[in-house]
Design a protein around this nucleic acid. Structure first.
Length: 248
DNA sequence: TCCCAGGCGATCT
DNA sequence: AGATCGCATGGG
């Protein structure tokens, strides 16, 4: 919150623009998950029961070896995933961009994510005018709840995963999928396992009968990310092959 | 054009 | 508990 980072890539080198080493250390190192020991986490996943013969998961891990779980502000995650429901990613990006432009503080380049207080002062109709659809009323009530303190994200972040999810699910517009994304990406709870339509398909295909990610233990969230991107990659490969040339 | 998207809430059985 | 449906909107 209040910080903006421009990232580019030159060949294999990652380039950061206008970012002092101090700002990188203080803000972005944790945000990007760089202070996490991914070698250790991946080693724990590899040593789980049954992974040795799980060719799909081993492939997913290899393909996703660069994936990091970001540590993003809980409020930003809450709003972003609240808007994500029954929606597609390009449109979600547009909706969030418009929210920032209209209600966020201007930064050197671009706009900050809006505060709960600023959003709470806007009306549902204003949100509808931004194209948020039926999610406008969810956003309005959530923003007010956070602003007036009746929804205390800092407090909920102290709960264990299950209790935190349960508390979040009391809010209108937040269900199990959105709640699990909030605790995973916004509260650092690595055992949360967001069950979206893709991951549900994966469970049916590779782990029939299983209804959650408990087989992946305390790093189920990272396992979910590996499987999610693996499955979407496979799906895009199939689509490319449908007309034989992948050009459509 | 028409289908559908990283769900949720309401309303059934 | 589990299955089904409507929802606002616009990207592809």
């Amino acid at each position: 919150m209040g910080h903006l980072l421009q990232i580019g890539k030159q060949g294999e080198k990652i380039q950061l623009y206008d970012c002092s080493p101090e700002e990188f250390d203080k803000i972005w190192k944790e945000y990007l998950g760089i202070s996490e020991d991914y070698a250790q986490i991946r080693s724990e996943l590899v040593h789980l029961e049954g992974i040795e013969t799980d060719e799909h998961f081993k492939q997913a891990m290899e393909m996703g070896k660069g994936i990091r779980i970001l540590r993003q502000p809980a409020f930003e995650i809450l709003i972003s995933f609240l808007l994500s429901q029954n929606n597609n990613i390009p449109r979600i990006k547009g909706m969030i961009a418009r929210l920032c432009e209209k209600y966020g503080a201007p930064l050197a380049t671009g706009f900050d994510f809006p505060t709960a207080e600023r959003l709470a002062s806007a009306s549902e109709d204003e949100f509808r005018a931004l194209g948020l659809g039926y999610r406008a009323s969810y956003l309005q009530t959530v923003a007010r709840a956070v602003a007036d303190g009746s929804l205390d994200l800092q407090e909920i972040a102290k709960y264990p995963t299950e209790e935190a999810m349960q508390a979040l699910c009391q809010v209108r517009g937040i269900g199990p999928k959105v709640a699990s994304c909030i605790v995973l990406f916004g509260m650092g709870k690595g055992d949360a396992f967001p069950l979206d339509v893709w991951v549900k398909r994966i469970l049916q295909k590779y782990y029939p009968g299983e209804k959650d990610g408990s087989r992946f233990g305390s790093h189920a969230g990272l396992a979910q990310q590996y499987l999610f991107y693996y499955e979407r990659y496979l799906s895009s490969e199939i689509k490319m092959g449908e007309n034989g040339n992948g050009q459509s």
